[in-house]
Structure formats: structure tokens, C-alpha cells
């Protein structure tokens, strides 16, 4: 770590202190589509996975254990660098407000595309464009605010090309719900258009199925 990055590291001491409660995360396994790492906290840390502590987005790469923090404030996302971080090729040294479709580069090689595809939802998606993988591996990282749209359109957070229509996962009073225009069978229950999704539940519709696995 060089001098400048050390200076950066000290600017947010709180995030570098280990022993905080583990991040609230889940894995969304969508059949025939992909696996998504869903981060439910407002503040997520990106870094290298280590056995001692868990960062919200562990990436198997040449990074620091806590490399950068993405913080959601209302509808805006603020990237706080703890170590060398670039956005669209320019190094940033302090909090930076992310805009849709910007490229975040962490360290030398990790490149993450930041997308906020839906105009009416604060949820964002980070996709690894370099060949690195998250741990556990996933196709993209969802920074989930109140709702998350899965469906065939470009503005969906999770693009599911062959789905006939959208499905919305949303939070209400720290519970997760799932809603669609078609009846969904959740956790083997009777089909309803709207129901609570608990960790481990499998959601099945006419032509779709996915599983919500808490981490």
C-alpha cells in the first residue's frame, strides 16, 4: 500500500474496524437465468474475501480486504474509496456520486459496471466486467433498495430474457414479498399473485422459477 492509499484508508475508520455484524445478503438463484448476490444493506463494503470477517461483496481478486464502500442515500449511490479506485478511468480520492453506466475500477484489474436501470427504483446492479468472480460466485451484484424488478425488459434489474412478464421483489417492514401478474407458488403453498418470500423459499410461476437463499 502506498502513501496515498494509506491516507485514503484512514478517511473512513469505521469501515475498517472488524467485528461488525455480518452484512444482510442473499443469493437469488434464477433457473435458466443466473445467480445474483443481493445486498440488502444501505452500506456495502467491497473487498477481498477473508476467513475472519465478511464483507458484503467479496471479490476474488488482488484487492484489499476492504477496498471500497458503496453507500446508498435515498436514490443516489456514493462510492467511498478506501484504496485505489477509479471511475471511468479517473482516480477518485473522496466520496463520489455514481451515475448510471459508470465503470468502477478497483485496484489494478477489477472492473465493475454500475447500472441503475429502472427510473422508478433506487436499486442498482454491479456487474463484473473483468474476469473476476465474487465469492460465492454470482452473475451480478444487486444493491437492493425497496424493490427489485425481474423481467424481460432492459429496465429490469435482473434481465430474464425469456420471461413473459415482470416479477417484483420488494421489502416491507423488513419482510420480503414477491408480486406478479400471474399466480406464484411460493414455498410450495397455494398460488397467489403476492406473497411473502422467506429465506430458502422457491418461487414458481407459469414459466419461471427462482430460489431466495439467505447467506
Amino acid at each position: 500500500m502506498n502513501c496515498s492509499t494509506r491516507a485514503l484508508a484512514s478517511f473512513n475508520e469505521e469501515d475498517t474496524v472488524p467485528g461488525k455484524q455480518p452484512p444482510n445478503r442473499a443469493l437469488l438463484w434464477i433457473d435458466a437465468v443466473g445467480g445474483y448476490l443481493v445486498c440488502l444493506d444501505e452500506r456495502i463494503v467491497i473487498g477481498q474475501p477473508s476467513p475472519n470477517e465478511t464483507v458484503a461483496v467479496p471479490i476474488l481478486a488482488d484487492l484489499s480486504r476492504r477496498h471500497a464502500v458503496v453507500h446508498r442515500d435515498g436514490g443516489t449511490y456514493v462510492l467511498e474509496p478506501l484504496h485505489t479506485t477509479r471511475v471511468d478511468g479517473r482516480e477518485i480520492r473522496g466520496p463520489y456520486i455514481l451515475a448510471d453506466n459508470q465503470l468502477i475500477q478497483l485496484g489494478d484489474g477489477v472492473r465493475l459496471r454500475f447500472r441503475k436501470p429502472h427510473a422508478l427504483s433506487a436499486t442498482a446492479r454491479l456487474t463484473l466486467e473483468s474476469h473476476h468472480k465474487t465469492q460465492p460466485s454470482s452473475d451480478a451484484i444487486l444493491l437492493m433498495a425497496d424493490s427489485c424488478v425481474l423481467g424481460p425488459h432492459r429496465h429490469c434489474h435482473v434481465p430474464c430474457r425469456y420471461w413473459p412478464r415482470d416479477i417484483i421483489i420488494y421489502r416491507q417492514d423488513s419482510q420480503l414479498f414477491c408480486r406478479a401478474d400471474e399466480p406464484l407458488r411460493i414455498g410450495g403453498g397455494t398460488p397467489t399473485p403476492r406473497a411473502e418470500v422467506r429465506p430458502g423459499d422457491r418461487v414458481e410461476g407459469e414459466a419461471i422459477s427462482f430460489t431466495w437463499e439467505a447467506l
Binding site: I30, A32, R161, R202, T211
Partner: peptide
Amino acid sequence: AMIKFTHPSGSRPLEGYTIKRG
């Protein structure tokens, strides 16, 4: 589209492997 998978996420039809998704 429209593929139905027999084994849901989390099941272990084969000893030693946990299915994650179809």
C-alpha cells in the same frame, strides 16, 4: 424459456453436490 427443473435450489440429489440453480 419455460424450462421446468426437477430439482430445486438447495437439493442434493447426488451425494456431495448441492444444486444451486437450473
